[in-house]
Amino acid sequence: MTPLLQITNLHASIEDREILKGIDLSVNAGEVHAIMGPNGSGKSTLASVLAGREDYTVTEGSVLFNGKELMELSPEERSREGLFLAFQYPVEIPGVSTANFVKTAVNESRKHRGQEPLEPAAFLSLMRERMALVEMDPSFLQRSLNEGFSGGEKKRNEIFQMAMLDPVLAVLDETDSGLDIDALRIVASGVNALRRADNATIVITHYQRLLDHIVPDFVHVLWNGRIVKSGDKSLALELEQRGYDWLKQESAVEA
């Protein structure tokens, strides 16, 4: 089986400082991968590089997504091809209603696939249905995107947008941070509801507790720009108990 995502020896720098130092990762359709690691290890950088943020320079390696070289596509093309990033820090856009924003986004992807824009009525009912997945009140549709939303509401809004865009590969960057246990459960059940055999999810987190709700097939530990250990979900539990230091020592010995 050709993987959905194939990252090979990926190096990336920002302002001449190398952050990703050779990442190899392959994700198949139907899988959930968790990427864990201490703060500053490069998790968000990896997510940003996949999504095409210009601040980062890819100096080496390749990323194949659905058979296409991701690095040759603009960020919006990557999105329209089915790559979704749930941001660690979603931005606020004053004056642009959530409904209008999501409608614009969805219609861009539809246009890319040669589909007509959705009828307003069909669109509205789709939005209501998908909001229900993350228990978001429809009144949020009229509000400016993320403006004045609580941390938890912003994260739910990310998952709502994910549900609307129906991506092939979703990368969730610390979607659990700042969530209380109820919000965590809601967000996780939203993500689980969207899991299918033909899509995949990469969950970035540094807490095990999210992985109780979104159960990963694989867990990888990112440290200092490299994946230093991979395993199944038991690795997450081990990290929870032992912390990261033993891994740092282990990989320092290897290096």
Partner: peptide, 19 residues
């Protein structure tokens, strides 16, 4: 953020400015 949702920069500026 807009780009990541499939909205190119020109359309994003229009959206933000109109908002």
């Amino acid at each position: 953020y807009c780009n990541q949702r499939g909205i190119d920069t020109e359309a994003a500026v229009a959206l933000i400015v109109n908002g």
